[in-house]
Amino acid sequence: MNDVVIRDVLPGADPGFDNRRLPVYEAGEIDVPFVVWGSEEVIARDTFWEEHAHPTHELLWNEHGASSATVGTRVWTITPTVGLWIPAGVRHSGWTPAGTRHRAAHFGVHAVPAIADRPVAVEVTPLLRLLLDRLDHGDLSGDERARTEGMVLDLIAPARNEILLQIPESPLLAPIVEAVLADPADTTTLAAWAARLGVSTRTITRAFRAGTGLGFSRWVATARVRHAIALLSRGEDIEDVAACVGYHSASAFGTAFRRITGTSPGRFRAG
């Protein structure tokens, strides 16, 4: 499980996908002439971004849809309201489903200190989006651009809720991880897994906490919510999504979703 590749192949999605290769740069290896430079793309086909690293800091978010970025054994979900700050030189891969309106902003290391020395989720507020749009599309003078860039930097801060799935490396947990990622509706209980693997429930719980910081139930709930976000981003009905990820009622699903994301499924889909 060291090389983590999580691809949310959803019902109706193109079974094929684009594979993109980008170079690996060290932080500051290229002396860029900008403070902030943005890009955007509507992703036509499911796209896997092979491991790469930028000479600049990068902020990823989506105007529409949910994608993911992987660093080592950690997988972040990226949405229109929760982005991901990746420091310059940090190797990462990504998965972006078809139909996603993908946004990125690169920050020159000469002008912008990293907000953290590791990837961190960032709250993408309406004001931050507006300012980044102004940098990308506005006809700004030098002073106007500098002021806008300064406001952007002031607004970038770690999010209160991040959608992060840590993949445990323990061989003991590999069958559980593979089963849940393949089918988030898998309802095998902790006791059933313990019997199947020939260990105690306490052994599995300890292994999950050591490898992810979460217990078995919370880890499974996070994996389910992560998959649910991909479905909700496609406009799927909330009750159907709840069933697809293993919940017997929309209310139980809503409780788990709010606990992990800080918002309800309905608000997330509307947003």
Rank of each mutant, 00 (worst) to 15 (best):
A207I: 08
W61Q: 05
G246W: 06
W61D: 01
L172C: 00
D3N: 12
A69H: 13
S217M: 06
A243E: 13
A210N: 11
D139M: 08
V120P: 03
T47M: 10
Y247M: 05
R134S: 14
R145H: 10
V42G: 11
G89H: 10
D240M: 07
L59K: 07
V82Q: 08
N2H: 10
P158D: 00
V75G: 06
R226N: 09
D139W: 06
R258Y: 12
L10F: 01
R147S: 01
R145G: 08
T261I: 03
G266L: 01
I167V: 15
W219F: 01
A192G: 04
I163N: 09
T81K: 10
G65C: 02
T255S: 14
V35N: 14
P158I: 00
C244N: 13
L132N: 05
C244Y: 10
D3H: 12
E162Q: 12
L197P: 00
S233W: 03
A66S: 13
P158G: 02
W61A: 06
I260V: 12
H110P: 03
A27T: 04
T56W: 07
E123L: 00
R45N: 09
L231W: 02
R160T: 09
L128C: 05
G65V: 03
S39P: 05
A195E: 15
R206L: 07
A252L: 10
H106Q: 14
G94A: 14
V24T: 14
V245G: 05
R147P: 00
L127C: 05
A230K: 14
V5R: 12
S67G: 15
V9S: 11
G28S: 04
D8T: 08
I6Q: 09
P11K: 06
T212M: 04
G235A: 06
H57V: 03
E169D: 13
D14M: 02
D143K: 12
V109P: 03
F17Q: 15
D14P: 00
V220I: 14
T79D: 07
R74P: 04
W76D: 00
L190F: 00
W76T: 03
V245D: 04
D31A: 15
V124P: 00
A191F: 08
H137P: 02
V241P: 01
T96L: 03
A146C: 08
R134K: 15
